[in-house]
């Protein structure tokens, strides 16, 4: 049993308006005491939803949705913090990439090129790659989120 009896509700939002909805929750609950919301999470991984922490019932959340533009519906049922706490600690983007992994660069001047990972900098979340099809090996350092894994190296499997 937790110290507070708060539940987590998921509210469906218009695409790309998650942050707006979170800001509007603050505005909506200001100046009225019926609906209590203590926190709102907008995880990057969860598109089209915001998570609302509240001690109130689902019916109250439905009232809240009515007040907020871009909020569409409440997902039926509530969950506990333990189910969503992994969203609070974002995992580094370079996790899952090892040396030798074949990646495709998805941003920057080398967009669309395939490359082999040579070095990983976990702290800066950068990886150094060498282009697959280039004649001479030129190391290029790119940000961890600007690559997509195409094929994992054998050691990682």
């Amino acid at each position: 049993m937790t110290e507070y009896d708060n539940k987590i509700y998921a509210i469906k939002t218009t695409a790309k308006q998650e942050r707006t909805v979170a800001d509007n929750v603050i505005k909506a609950i200001e100046g009225q005491k019926d609906i209590r919301v203590v926190a709102v999470i907008v995880p990057e991984e969860l598109k089209g939803y915001v998570l609302v922490e509240s001690p109130d019932s689902l019916a109250r959340m439905e009232q809240l949705v009515e007040l907020i533009p871009h909020a569409r519906a409440v997902v039926r049922g509530a969950t506990a913090l333990s189910e969503v706490e992994h969203f609070l600690v974002p995992k580094p983007v370079v996790s899952g990439i090892t040396e030798g992994t074949i990646v495709e660069i998805i941003a920057g001047p080398f967009k669309g090129e395939k490359a082999v990972v040579k070095r990983i900098d976990t702290g800066k979340e950068e990886i150094t790659v060498e282009l697959y099809e280039s004649m001479v090996p030129i190391p290029i350092t790119v940000r961890g989120d600007s690559v997509r894994v195409v094929e994992r190296s054998e050691e990682a499997a």
């Binding site: 110290e3 708060n6 979170a22 926190a39 922490e53 913090l81």
Partner: peptide, 25 residues
Amino acid sequence: AGYLVIIDPEHSEIAKKMKITMAGR
């Protein structure tokens, strides 16, 4: 990346988990 709005840090489990004592974004 990722957005977190804390409205009532004293009653929020999330705020406690994140060791946040002040309301805000």
